[in-house]
Design a protein around this nucleic acid. Structure first.
Lengths: 215, 215
DNA sequence: AAAAAAAAGGGTGTTTTCACGGTTTTTTTT
DNA sequence: AAAAAAAACCGTGAAAACACCCTTTTTTTT
């Protein structure tokens, strides 16, 4: 039997979901609460914790993101599935980043929900088109901005850029690259000019955005 | 008829692929070269450019990444499909980040290749499990490191952290937050202490890594 | 109501970062 | 071989970032 916690601030929806899920074979809702705060309290008296948490995002007091962060930190064994109306990349990525292993929109079919729950049990995660596309857009830098004024890193600029995405000072970077600090200064200035930036944070963000530095 | 360019340094594989693809209905290999440099030269005499570029990654002189970057910059209409032995997240993400719309391993089935090519024409991209999982892992921060010493941003620290991921100076951040620069200094120092960091770049990387700031 | 903790503000000085001016050496192009 | 371009290097000074130690106000806890 797979145990489930429902976190959603709309009592009506919560109850409807509870009814629905309890009819699925091998799934049982053991917790239903209106927000993360309530969940935190209830979980202290729930041993063992639920196998799956179905989490809404828009909730008062402690929203879905905060709830996911808390669950990941305190109950890592509980698989998180986002179930929300938020149909935007930002929400999808953020929830996945916080450890959710699935993301389902509230306008999904009953079968989708069941398929998602089953997938969580059998595969450990649930994939769908929505997630896929959000992820794809997430890692893909905006193509237009850096492709027309042909942007090409040359020489050791890429090497420098990667090191700029660290806590090394420019002097330390110069040491690592076996260059004089002045030369490194030159790389920085050239990139500032080329990319229209004015600070090292800007360089780091650019590098990450364009896949030059991977976190 | 969909035109295709093959970029692969192994002549044998290139020829085999050419034979294979030319047997697919509506696909024709019009260019086959051993690396990006050769491609650059050949493309100057090829009007219009090919619809699809099948790109290997490990090549001498100008590898698949450089080739992809060049193609995106100079021939944005050419769809790029990576076809390589590199079965690692880094390569997948990097190619997708450079604008590839698909990624296929060389040990795929013939049918997979045909499906990928057809998908490129009809959908504009080609999705598979490999890409999906790499993307998922890519946006997912390492769970263990920041979940045990429960790390909680309090008060306006998160707001500050987001602003630290910009090119604003601390003074400008203070203005935006309606605080004195000293207070902002305090936020920075508190976070340095709490997170074991020593520079603003470190803060930015942390914020991105943990989904506090999304690029 | 008192104590503790957190948030906000502060001073001073060092180090790093950035801007702006340049030169020399190597590589590429013509 | 000469010209052009790129890579490496350099000095100076102002601004920003960082370290360290401290006070006042507000909020939370006891």
């Amino acid at each position: 039997m797979t145990t489930i916690a429902l976190i959603d601030d709309h009592a009506l929806i919560r109850n409807a979901l509870k009814e629905l899920i309890n009819r699925f074979a091998d799934f049982k809702v053991i917790i239903d609460v209106a927000n993360g705060q309530e969940l935190v309290e209830v979980l202290q008296q729930t041993v063992p914790p639920p196998n799956i948490a179905l989490i809404d995002i828009n909730m008062p007091i402690m929203d879905g993101f905060a709830t996911a962060a808390y669950l990941r930190a305190h109950y890592p064994s509980t698989k998180m599935l986002a179930l929300t109306v938020n149909n935007d990349d930002e929400s999808v990525i953020k929830m996945l980043g916080l450890g959710a292993v699935g993301y389902l929109l509230k306008d999904a079919e009953t079968d989708d929900l069941q398929a998602a729950l089953v997938a969580l049990v059998t595969d450990g995660y649930y994939h769908n088109e929505l997630i896929h596309n959000s992820l794809l857009r997430a890692v893909k830098p905006v193509p237009a901005r850096f492709s027309s004024p042909v942007f090409v890193l040359q020489g050791r600029e890429e090497e420098f850029l990667k090191l700029a995405c660290t806590e090394l000072t420019y002097k330390e970077i110069a040491d690592q690259m076996c260059l004089s600090p002045r030369t490194v200064d030159g790389y920085r200035d050239a990139l500032f000019e080329k990319l229209g930036l004015r600070s090292r944070v800007g360089l780091a963000l650019f590098a990450i955005k364009n896949g030059i530095f991977r976190i």
